[in-house]
Amino acid sequence: MQRSRAEVATDEAGAGEGLRQTWRSWSLWRAWEQWWEGPNGSRRRWTTWCSSSCWWVPLQRGLWLLESALYLLLSLGLCHALFTTGCHLLRSLWPVVAAVWKHLLPALLLMALSALPALLFAASFLLLLSTLLSLLGLLTGMTRPGPVISLNSGLDPGPRPI
């Protein structure tokens, strides 16, 4: 006895719809078929597919992603190398810093303190020089004949006799 076609193509429940596919595999297969059909129903050829940009653009994006990931790993590696090298350098420079603090800092303080009298003398000399120059300007202004220009007209007593 021969079985009918509907009986052969039944699923587990016996519904008679044939083999079921998941919607994901079915939609992927339909998308592939639609792409292969091409525009206006004309089938694509491998030569046109290789010469088009439809396969190159995703590959290029993937390569860009890979390149950016490699650059990120490289920058992280450089940061790690700089950090560990900096730690080793600071650890090895600590005795130098301690020696500078112990010997050079007192020498610098002593030099600054010994230069203090010279700095005070220079400041007093400049103050004396500027005072003398101001007095010289005042004397030359008083001995010169001519009208007196007052900066404050309220205190001006009037013209000065010659």
Rank of each mutant, 00 (worst) to 15 (best):
A13L: 12
L139A: 13
M1D: 15
S153M: 10
T47H: 08
L133C: 12
L129V: 13
S27A: 10
T48G: 01
V8L: 12
A69C: 14
L93C: 04
L136E: 15
K102D: 05
M1F: 11
W32L: 12
L155Q: 10
W49I: 14
L78Q: 06
I149P: 01
G14I: 05
L127Y: 15
G141C: 09
L129S: 11
K102E: 07
G18Y: 07
L19Q: 04
A15Y: 04
V96M: 00
H88L: 13
S25N: 07
L109S: 04
L70R: 05
S27N: 07
W55N: 03
A69S: 11
L108D: 00
W26V: 01
A81C: 10
A123V: 03
P106T: 00
S51G: 06
P106M: 02
T143L: 06
S130H: 10
A112E: 04
L74C: 14
S68L: 14
W64S: 12
L90T: 12
A115W: 09
S75G: 13
S134I: 06
A13R: 10
M1T: 13
T22Y: 02
W23P: 07
L70H: 01
L109I: 11
A112F: 04
A6M: 06
P147Y: 00
N40D: 13
L110R: 11
W32G: 02
L89H: 04
L116M: 14
A107G: 03
A15C: 15
L127N: 13
E12I: 10
